[in-house]
Design a protein around this nucleic acid. Structure first.
Lengths: 209, 209
DNA sequence: ATGGACATGTAATTTGTTACATGATTGC
DNA sequence: GCAATCATGTAACAAATTACATGTCCAT
């Protein structure tokens, strides 16, 4: 096919021993001080992980926790000793911490960033819609993104300044900036849409060299 | 759970009649003038769709094409009439164009943008690695992104100025700007990493209000 | 005591990937 | 003739979602 990482026929997602990035993400949540339940993990993922790496469905989190425990990377305990559906808290084990550290420093990239942007798909298909509607969709997206931005800033504020949280803070700082540029990008696109309707290419032509 | 679109327990991906965004993306590729084979579609997706909406595996493209044909949204024909594995070209039907237009103007968002950024996952887990290694990973990512940027600019240059391609052009323009900011974001993160190592929060403090 | 948020999980299904098999076409 | 690329597809599997079943805990 074409370029190095283009083909998606690469990046052999491990079979057998390796784990998918999602499993490492869940184990990563567990790698910070304290033990937590699947439910708590989901809330945390929604509030922060999702800004730079997506929030798995709760059922998948439970599944990953079971897999992690089966591998000895996590342990769990019940609150009220023997109730059937009682709260179950997970904690990372030493083996888990070691495995996670190995993954984190693994050579090269762990796969390229993947962006699935349904709005762009619709803009790309703009020849099938009317410009007004497209502009409305972009407007909705901007509003949504500003909401996310607020949430991301809140998450950043909540992350205290202690050593243990400095890297999550950096990731959230990146996310906040990213969301800021997402708004700018959408606004610029609104401009391009105008330009395509009226005159020709654009006004603040974006691609210099 | 928490916020409106946070929960991922929403956005009921349709069962029965509806199609996943990926199917619309493939049908979208077909909605531009000309007929094409699965193989050509894959190359095109690698060269342009992937910048704003991911490139499905070739096997999935073939599968989607079959599904699209089963629904009457596309037709296919063989080149050399009855060879077993001959080139098969697909074209969109009127029904397909109508269905696609309906989807494109579908109310509200077609699901939030999803970003899976393995590099950020590793930065987030930075407390498990040494800073040097992290910086190297970010450096690799910057190099990679610059490569993608070049490819996106090429794709934009290749898109001619005719009416039919103006929306794909807008999507590519967005992608080029996005990749530019991706580089800037990574560079800023390098700065944050320094700041976290030496002094406290940062220098060009990014989150004002 | 009832409704709602909290909590855990299973089952069925869909989506998507990798690995593989196979053959046609083209350039050397 | 032979390798590379073009081309299509199947099979096995992995990843992830939705729908559902159930039960606890708490406030009204």
């Amino acid at each position: 096919m074409t370029a190095r990482r283009t083909t998606s026929q690469r990046h052999e997602v491990p079979s057998g021993d390796g784990l998918p990035p999602t499993a490492w993400a869940v184990l990563g949540l567990l790698s910070f001080p304290g033990e937590r339940t699947g439910y708590e993990l989901k809330k945390w993922a929604d509030a922060s992980l999702r800004f730079f790496y997506w929030s798995p469905a709760i059922s998948q989190i439970y599944a990953e926790l079971r897999r992690l425990e089966a591998r000895g990377y996590a342990t769990s305990r019940r609150s009220g000793p023997e109730e059937p559906r009682a709260k179950r808290s997970y904690a990372i084990t030493d083996a888990g911490r070691t495995a996670l550290a190995d993954w984190a420093r693994g050579a090269g990239d762990a796969g390229p960033p993947v962006l699935k942007h349904p709005l762009l798909l619709r803009v790309w298909l703009g020849h099938l819609t009317d410009p007004e509607h497209l502009r409305a969709l972009i407007g909705e997206h901007i509003a949504q993104t500003r909401g996310d931005l607020k949430e991301a800033r809140d998450a950043l504020d909540r992350a205290d300044g202690t050593e243990a949280w400095s890297h999550p803070q950096i990731a959230l700082r990146w996310s906040v900036r990213r969301l800021e540029t997402e708004v700018e990008l959408a606004e610029a696109m609104l401009g391009d849409l105008d330009a395509a309707g009226t005159g020709q290419p654009a006004e603040d032509s974006p691609t210099p060299g």
